[in-house]
Design a protein around this nucleic acid. Structure first.
Lengths: 207, 207
DNA sequence: TCCTTCGTTCAACGCTCGTTGATTGAACGA
DNA sequence: TCGTTCAATCAACGAGCGTTGAACGAAGGA
């Protein structure tokens, strides 16, 4: 219950300036990620971020120059690369990646997702990531409408994640990741060009 | 290109008070729906709605009492009832309903959808509608995890609609409704409990 | 006709927000 | 040790917002 980042930032004065700054910046970024994920860009106040990070609002401005700057830094996502290969492998890789996102809340990713519909910068970043994903999937699907198929898979993933974590639709919020992944498996297989009943592990319907 | 509701609300003074009021209210509601759908709840200003409706902001308050009141009225949706029956029929009905929503922008529905992630009232209305839909679908699916299956279908529909109209992801925004519906058909059939290749019209893959 | 009703406008209040600039005091380099 | 750097605070500005209440003028009823 006791850590270095306690309520008073000057509790342990035995730190170099660089350490101090890095630590404070980190605290601000964590607070920002949480609040952006919880309330979205517009409803998240610089003052609120500062308060959660035990810091003055002016300091947030000093470090990140603007609210947009803070969001850009806080919502920066590592590019998720799925291995290309046979369609069945791609389908399984997509399902595994989805499963991982359903195991534990991906806070930074939720910060973007929550703000996507009302903040143009978040939307643009999301579209760019979507294009990358579509291009990756496309190369593994040997059909003419590969782009649309990849786009649909993307839409399904984001729809499920959004309803589970942002909207907390009870059905999806309570389900186990495995249940969801198993039900979605035939969908992904079909969209990837496979028949629904061939290739990859297919579980019997639950219950 | 010419209608009674032109820029000047006093252009045709030959109207009774009730007509006048109803007309102005309608103009305000249309403007509100458009702006809520375009920018979401937070970024839509009462002043902006009033300006688009060629009316003073105070009048909007006078008629709707608050911004929330305006949103509630503007975002009121007619309940979409899909016929219950055999799983295959339900799947087709869901696909048809999706197809309709993909043919023409459903503005009122988009106003809700755009505001869902940041406005709690919109979220609650959405969840309620979702529960109704899930209950409807559930009765037609004879398996144990019917609720989750229905929830997934819901999530897919909203994911697709959101990416097409709100995010305007190029792949989904440019595709024809038929292409989307046909690709999604096997997914819905599987989720509804059918095998992907039996029952209902199944098109050959496009291209 | 006169008084009431009501659609509509206008100016303003109070609040919150992003942002700024001055200021303080401790860490730092010479 | 002394002057500089820089993390951090504080008070304030200006803009935009939802909301209010007074005021005006045309429609409606007696």
């Amino acid at each position: 219950m006791r850590s270095v980042t306690d309520s008073d930032s000057r509790a342990t004065p035995r730190r170099t300036r660089a350490e101090q700054r890095q630590q404070t910046e980190g605290r601000i970024l964590s607070a920002a990620r949480e609040l952006f994920a919880e309330h979205g860009y517009d409803r998240t106040t610089i003052r609120a971020v500062a308060a959660r990070a035990n810091v003055d609002a002016g300091l947030v401005m000093h470090y990140f120059h603007s609210k947009d700057g803070l969001f850009t830094r806080a919502a920066k996502l590592p590019p998720d690369d799925l291995p290309d290969g046979a369609p069945s492998e791609v389908a399984e890789a997509l399902l595994a990646s989805l499963g991982k996102r359903l195991e534990a809340e991906p806070v930074a990713s939720l910060a973007v997702l929550r703000s996507i519909l009302t903040h143009s910068e978040a939307a643009e970043g999301f579209r760019a990531a979507g294009r990358r994903r579509v291009d990756q999937i496309k190369t593994a699907i040997p059909v003419g409408d590969a782009e649309l198929r990849a786009g649909l898979i993307s839409a399904i993933i984001h729809g499920v994640v959004a309803e589970r974590y942002l909207l907390r639709t009870s059905v999806l919020a309570d389900a186990s990741p495995d249940e969801i992944v198993n039900l979605l498996r035939p969908c992904f297989q079909v969209l990837v060009g496979l028949s629904a009943t061939s290739g990859g592990p297919v579980d019997a319907p639950h219950g």
